[in-house]
Design a protein around this nucleic acid. Sequence first.
DNA 1: ATCGTCATTTGT
DNA 2: CAAATGACGATC
Length: 705
Amino acid sequence: MRLDKPIARVLPLLEPAHLDRDFDYAVPPEMDELAQPGVRVRVRFSGRLVDGYILERLTRSTHSGKIMPLQRVVSGERVLTPEIVRVVSAVAARYAGTRADVLRLAIPPRHARTEAAEPKPVVLPDIPEKFPEWDRYVHGGSFLSALRRGSGPRAAWQAMPGEDWARRLAELAATAVAGGRGAIIMVPDQRDLDRVAAECAVLVGDSVVGLSAGLGPAARYRRWLAVLRGTARVVVGTRSAVFAPVRDPGLIVVWDDGDDTYAEPRAPYSHAREVAMLRAHDTGAAFVVSGFARTAEAQAIVESGWAHDLIADRATLRAATAHIHAPGDSDIALERDPLARAIRIPGTAFAAARRALAAGEPVLVQVPRRGYVPALACAKCRTPARCRHCNGPLALPETGSWGRRDAKVDHGSRHVSAGGRSLDANDRTPSGRDGAAAVPLGSRGSADVAVSPSCRWCGKVEPAFRCGTCGSRVLRAVVIGAQRTAEELGRAFPGVPIRGSGGAAVLDSVPSGPQVVVATIGAEPPVPGGYGVALLLDGWALLGRADLRAAEDALRRWMSAAALVRAAGEVLVMAEPSLPVVQALVRWDPIGHARHELAARVEVRFPPAVRLAALDGTTATISELLNATVLPDGVEVLGPVPLPPGARTPFSGDAAPAEVERMILRVDRHEGSALSRALVAALTVRSSHRSDGPLRVQIDPVDIG
DNA sequence: ATCGTCATTTGT
DNA sequence: CAAATGACGATC
């Protein structure tokens, strides 16, 4: 028996970078029928058996050496589609990773029994021609028409306050399906997934599946297969859903793209929004990046012209937005009511809450979670302190013990001392789950140790800090705002039900009626008709994080909570009113803020204005890598710096965590792919030399600065 | 992992 | 000068 195409070109799933190549194998005649492009195979690779995928069948091999036969076709299911091959290759190239790494994210483990099961038929309900709510957004109707025609429109959508965004997203998916194509909607977590999937089910019936990491292997594979086989046309999922093998994708949506769950924690550390863009670009699918707020990355996409604004006009927006105020610190400091001072809200906020409750309306209280990283900020205006050389974040050296007090750093005397702060109530709250203020105070926690902050990026010591915003020379450690005590609120509003939402007990929604809902950030439940009032506590704690995205993140979290308030309701945010980010909330101007953020990142050369690569490893492994390739012209090499606090060091134990440091490579955006190519070349050299010391390469990591 | 290639060492 | 040993690199 002579085979038409006796050669199978195979991608084996191998770890080392230099083996990220295709290899040709002979197809034994009895495997001819099953061994189609896209199937999983087992092949003998230098003695051992490895898994791989058939990429294509060929009449002859281009390889002149010996050709081994395929060992086994695992199943005839063609799990790797040509489109996914392209996306996987593009993601690997962009992130200087291997296709094998990306494939492990893209294709779930096989479950043989599930594969054998008969799929049940799916009936698609009639989908309405129009979804009029979209007309509340400028060009909303024409966006949906273009989506339905399949012309692949791309937009950055800012949902209005009060918007039933899950329903709107379902309408987009249904429109893509009505146009004969599939859709992917990505959400940050399971709660949002359930909500969006339920809305999709109303419009497209059983054509929607939810895909998330929480599923067991069988359910995960069953749903994924339904997508592959075309029974399911709409996928609602968390970050890895961006790779779902939806047939003929007509729409890819990312909701709330500033959420950090979109960053893949495993190699190649890809970001779901970027993968979505690569896939939309490749397939011509429509693309929507969305949320109440807007990231600098989304703004960059708009300013480059790749996507367009999809937003409400000013009047429509104003009519939907609550009245938002930021009472200043002084209002709180002057507050005479001890209870109000204890939970750090001024009398005006108390009064607003009382009014809402008296009118039978619910009140939302947003509080910070514990776990915010201590960093240094200007004591006066609370702008995060940045390095004068590279704009990295300033921090105190992490040498001594960690005290449970606030600290003030006075650079006139270069001393650290334990000290109070005007808004501090943490120290008075019951210890334990609350008030985990953590600030390094120098060795043994002594309160008077000479210390200068240094840059977390370039390591340079800053001996004479001066705030770039207000000129103050005084730094303060910004400490963790923790779960506030619902009991104190209970005392303030006797007889009113108090509910908590956060941590392990997140409420999906609450019924209407007078009540106080105390929710940690991100766990705010919607309520029918909206809240009458929202109080956003301890705003400064969000803003002071040692994070490039602190302001953007704070605005995103405030807006997500404020959007749950009814149109003429009231929002009070406890943060310095003069700060631009607070002004952006008060004016409900997510785009103005994103524009400002992006301009700032252009100014200081942070992503998305530039492309960064973080090289984490030991001095030896990093320099080995850098010596193994020629970096593109104009690349800046910054560091070494210590790893960001809390960063995982997923190295196989060769180096003690203390030895691991980070180098930053920085290039203009248009040199980004050249940088990735250079890094792939370096990693290839390294792996072919058997060097397996600790090293990790991340492109535009989210934990930068 | 394993095998082949090629240079180097070792045993006459 | 041939055989033994080892380093290195490819792996279809």
